[in-house]
Design a protein around this nucleic acid. Structure first.
Lengths: 341, 341
DNA sequence: CTGAAAGCGCTTACAG
DNA sequence: CTGAAAGCGCTTACAG
């Protein structure tokens, strides 16, 4: 009697399949990977055996041998932020088509968490990384990856003085568009609320803010610039603070739509009506901006497209040895709605 | 002269570390995994060598040998949905603490995409799966995983007639609370808008909807029940349709907050003022519900807690062989705001 | 507490 | 177009 009881099920391997189909293991391996060199008859035999034995391909063994994991690490600051989740959808949809899977990490803007996530992902032998870097990311974090010769694409936030592909939008231009729109409407006291001063995304917006003012011959009042969390809480806090100014602003440029929602809430608490008493512009054009009441004037930043581009660049680096470094900067668009008509 | 040029860098292995430290490979392996059996002196020697050689642990090799990947597959319907992204944060934070990493897949509610994602994840030898199943998920999808003896936890949506751990909230009770609140206010014509009829989440809400009516002795008018996409677009569509009813509703229960935002938008288009002309209740209590204008009455569904619980159950199944099947149903809470005061 | 050896399940040259 | 054999870098019994 053969003893089956309690015997741990042995995994069906490619060898079993090959034996069952009456071919060599290497042939079976080629069939699995759809190699053109195999005759249709052989292919069919192997596929039948796979079906019959219930064989499950083992990518772990494959990646140990072939040194390619078909996994891409994606590190973001916060998935509950709509801009980021839209970006992630773009990344995922693109990679999926190319048979890559996403290993996800969230840093909540913590540099130490980011370091830990990156090393875990390297240990898992990801084929490449797409990083939406934390605000205070050190350039050494990225240069270490370059040293390991691991392809990396930065997205949304640039890390200064670093040698790396990058996809993002032109925050300077976007802010310039938004602030110029307010200046054209006759505003001369425009606040800039929310966002973290250390981040490249804040600095870029500041440049656009300044440039629009310079162009219009209007001086920037530094007391109207208050940084804070890039969330709706940050919006509430900063707007309440700026309203205490003896000479308060007549318009507000917000770091993001999320911040703008907080700003609108803060204004509501003070009985100030946006679009009437004060003009508000956001940044990102997340779907909620349109259905918010009142609908928010904002700058479109196409996060999904950024995700698609980032994934495509990485893919080209992996499969086509496309080593030319790229910097793709998408053009933003101003969308005028009721908060600043 | 030694030829270094163009020579592909050989990977530093644990053997190199062991040789460098003057110990055996097995000892080095134990040091890496923090085995208590190793003396402090030996440990220090090995750690120094790791540092010096710049050794990177290879989890791929480790998992081929040890049959444990330290990767959990997480499959969700849509990360850009706030409920889902909050859920994911809960899952991620919990797993990360336990040294597991998340392989992410998004189905967009497509069953075939879900099937493909699951098999890719199985090929990557995930240690377990957390699945926020697509609406029309077939029970065979889950039973196949049970057959592979892969631990699975379902979250948010139950798959009928299936043998599996589950974490979700009590949608029946949540809807009962919301609809009873409207009935107590004297409404007798309450619409139920949005959500897909096939899904367990819709069916449960329907049960709660019916039960609240039965309790109040009010008949349900089927012409006020219109299903649709669980998005704000779905909300706009279904509210415009229900308003065409010769005898329109005086209150609306929405499948989710997202649907409610669409409903509010649709009402705005018709000049109907929520909280005044008509009462609205949502479901989920996403952060935007509070800062929306007007703030939305809704049911709190604690997605982050669901994520934490799901990850914890899975962890216990993996590490403690905790094979008792669990069904955790969280209690929802009604949050009354301006759309129904 | 440590060492020598086998093996996880593939892919990859190489030879035919 | 196919086969036999080595090897990816770990962990795991087993022996000491």
């Amino acid at each position: 009697m053969v003893i089956f009881l309690k015997q741990k099920k042995r995994r069906i391997t490619l060898q079993d399949v090959a034996k069952h189909a009456g071919v060599s293991t290497s042939t079976a391996s080629l069939v699995i990977r759809n190699h053109p060199r195999i005759s249709d008859a052989t292919k069919q035999k192997v596929l039948n055996s796979i079906e019959e034995l219930g064989y499950v391909y083992d990518r772990v063994a494959a990646k140990l041998r072939s040194q390619s994991s078909k996994i891409i690490g994606v590190i973001v600051t916060d998935i509950s932020n709509k801009f980021i989740s839209e970006f992630l959808i773009g990344v995922q949809q693109t990679l999926e088509k190319m048979d890559y899977t996403v290993l996800l990490g969230t840093t909540f803007d913590s540099v130490s968490k980011q370091e830990r996530l990156i090393s875990t992902m390297v240990e898992h032998r990801v084929d490449g990384l797409i990083i939406n870097a934390a605000s205070k990311t050190n350039k050494s974090t990225i240069s270490q990856l370059n040293h390991l010769e691991l392809p990396v694409v930065l997205a949304n936030r640039e890390v200064e003085h670093v040698n790396c592909d990058y996809v993002g939008i032109d925050y300077i231009k976007g802010t310039y568009l938004a602030v110029s729109h307010l200046l054209k409407k006759g505003h001369t006291r425009i606040a800039f609320l929310g966002g973290i001063k250390m981040s490249s995304t804040w600095k870029d917006r500041m440049k656009g803010f300044q440039k629009a003012h310079d162009n219009a011959g209007v001086a920037v009042d530094k007391s109207l610039i208050i940084d804070g969390l890039p969330t709706s809480e940050g919006g509430v806090q900063t707007v309440l603070e700026v309203l205490k100014n003896p000479n308060p602003p007549t318009a507000i440029f917000c770091f993001s739509d999320l911040v703008a929602f907080g700003v609108l809430q803060g204004l509501g608490m003070q009985g100030i009506i946006p679009g009437q008493d004060i003009d508000i512009v956001g940044f990102d054009n997340i779907p909620e901006a349109e259905i918010y009441h009142p609908p928010l004037t904002t700058v479109s930043s196409f996060p999904r497209t950024i995700g698609i581009k980032a994934a495509t660049i990485l893919y080209n680096k992996l499969e086509q040895d496309d080593s030319i470094q790229q910097r793709i900067i998408l053009n933003p668009e101003l969308v005028i709605r009721e908060t600043s008509t």
